[in-house]
Simulated scan of single mutants.
Amino acid sequence: MCAGAGEGVCGHGGECVRLRMRVCAGSVPVPGLSTVTWKKEADINVRMTQDKETCWISSSALISPGLFLLADCNNNCVKLIDVSTRIVTARLQLPGYPWDVCVLHDDQAAVTLPNNSMIQLLSIKGGQLSRGKKIVSPECRGITSYNNRLYVLYKSNPRIEVMTLDGHIISTFQKDDGKQLFQRPYYLTVSASTPPTLYVSDYSANTVLQLSLDGKVLREYRDKQLIRPESVVEVGPGQIIVCGRDIHNVLLLSERDGKMTEILGQKDGLTKPYSVTFCPHTRAIVVGMRDNNSLNVFNAK
C-alpha cells in the first residue's frame, strides 16, 4: 500500500500525510509550489446512485497511486475513487456523517463521526471498504496519525488528544503557558519537518497554528486571504496547503519565511473548498467542495 498525500491526484489526511509522503513520494522532489502554474482539468463526478443528497467531500486521503478515500459528509458514507479511471470504485454507508479521514498502516484508515461520538477504523484492503473497531470519542473532528499515534481534534472544549490505535489517551493539548490554544479547530496534519510538527486550522480564529508534537506553539499563520480555514495538508518538507472556505481559495504556507500565497482561487472555479490533496508523482491538486458533486483537479504545467 502506498499511503500518500493524495495520489493519481492526492490529498488530505495527516500522517496520513507524513506516512503518505514518505512512502508514496519516496524520493520524488516536491517543487516550490508558489511558482507553479496550475491547469484545470475536467472535474470528476463523485455522486453515486445510492446518494440521496448533493455530495460534500469534507476530507480525502491517498490510499495508493490514483486511489483516494473520500469522506462524503452529506451522504453519511466514505468512498474510494480511482482518479485515473475517474470512477468511484467502492462505497461504505456509515451510521452518521463523516468529517475527516486519515490513512493508517496495514491497509487501515480512520474516519471521525462527530455526531456518533466515535472514530471508526476501516479496512481498505484490496480496494474494498469495511468497518473495523470503534473508538469512543465524543465530538471528534479532525484526525491525523504519526508514529502509531492518533492526533484527534475536538470542537467543543477545543483540544487535541493524542491516543493509541486502541483509543487510550496518552496526552491532551489544550493550553500553552496558560493560554487557550484554539477557538474552533477543524483539521490538522503532521509535517515532515525535522523535527516533525503539527499544523491546525482554526475556523473561528482564521489562523493556522504550528505546534510541536508536545503541544507548544511555534508559529501562528494569519493572512487577509485566509478566511474560515478548513483542510490543512502537508505537500512536502516546509510546504503546507490549506483551504480558505469563505474566500474560496487554496493557500500555500511556507515554513521557511512564514509567508502565505494563494495558488488557487475563485477564478479557478473554487466555491467553498473543504478538502485538498496534493500528489507529488503527478504534481496534481484535487479539491473537494461543500454541496458539490465534483472534485476539482489541477495539474502543474
Rank of each mutant, 00 (worst) to 15 (best):
Q108V: 06
T164G: 05
S156K: 13
P98T: 05
Q174N: 06
D166Q: 15
P65N: 09
S191Y: 08
P98F: 05
P138N: 05
Y154K: 02
D82Q: 15
M163I: 03
A192L: 08
L94W: 06
I87G: 02
T189C: 15
F173K: 04
S145Q: 15
Q93Y: 03
D82P: 15
R91T: 13
S137L: 01
A109T: 00
C140P: 04
T172W: 01
G142V: 02
S84P: 00
T144K: 10
Y151S: 06
S156E: 12
G66W: 00
F182D: 00
S156F: 08
L70W: 01
T89Q: 13
G178F: 14
P114H: 10
Q108I: 05
S64Q: 09
I143C: 03
G178I: 11
G142R: 03
S123I: 02
V83Y: 11
D166L: 13
T189M: 13
R86V: 07
C73R: 15
N74I: 09
I170L: 15
Q180M: 08
Q93S: 13
F173N: 00
S123Q: 04
P114L: 09
K134D: 00
G126N: 01
G127I: 04
L165E: 12
D107G: 14
L80M: 14
D177L: 14
P98K: 03
F182A: 00
N76T: 02
D72L: 07
Q108D: 10
P95V: 04
G142A: 03
P98N: 09
Q93N: 12
Q120Y: 02
I119S: 08
H105T: 10
D106T: 12
K79F: 06
Y97L: 12
Y186K: 05
S117T: 05
V83Q: 11
Q180F: 00
T164S: 15
L122I: 03
P95L: 04
G178D: 12
V101A: 04
